[in-house]
Amino acid sequence: MTSKWTSRLIIGLTLTFLIGPFLIIILAGMSAGDFLAFPPDGLSLKWYIKVFTVESFQKSFALSMFLAVFGTLTALVLGVPAAYAISRYDIPFGETIKTVVAAPIIVPGIIVGLALLRYLVIPLGFTVTLALFLAHTALVLPYAVRVVLSSLNNLESDMEEAAVLLGCSRVGAFTRVVLPNIQGGVLAAFILGFVTSFNQVPVSLFLSGPGVRTLPIDMLSYMEITFDPSVAALSALLAFLSVVIVFVAEKFLGFSRYV
């Protein structure tokens, strides 16, 4: 049975490497002391409570939520029809369109932020918030298209034709037959997009202005100035939030099928 134990050891070490740091972060955030340390100087929940009272965290959290929710919704509004077109039509320039829509995955985010700052915000007078919104939408769009596309490809197009022959219009066939059958995929795309947008850093690096900062950027600048455990506490809370979202999504949706 040695191979079984070797196998357990390997998995154990890998998981310790991947998950262990989070456990440390959770405990480091529970420190009663004023400086980040591990093991923590006594236990308290004061830093977990404090992060809710820091004004800049409140504002940046709100901005990040706004971007993640509305950026992803916009991406779905653009992406669901595009995915539908890709899966059901033989569109002219189809390959070009696919490449264009997928491009934001390959272009490093930091460059996107810089380009939008230089050519949209400065010369055209776009607000930073608008630029952030556009950048996050474009960034989430490829994921939205990919996830929705794979659910569409699993759905036979026969079904739409059957609906049309039973009297549906094309739009009717989409809303009555396609949408109910891909709603799991759309929801999964929303969750994936939300998480991607919320955690996004490089795009937002240059796109910040007075009072306009996403939460991860705010954390980065906070940790440059202060060395207290609040960032650890906040990180732990964010990790916890992600875990809850993913767990719920997996439970009700079989999320991992779609990713």
């Binding site: 029809p81 595009a82 059901r88 369109i97 491009a103 380009a115 949209l120 474009a138």
Partner: peptide, 24 residues
């Protein structure tokens, strides 16, 4: 019809994402 469905997404990305990046 298919092109009309796919175009908004492509134009959005091309204009607001690829174009600025290209200029940079």
């Amino acid at each position: 019809e298919g092109l009309a469905l796919a175009l908004p997404a492509a134009v959005f990305t091309a204009l607001l994402f690829l174009l600025p990046v290209g200029i940079l």
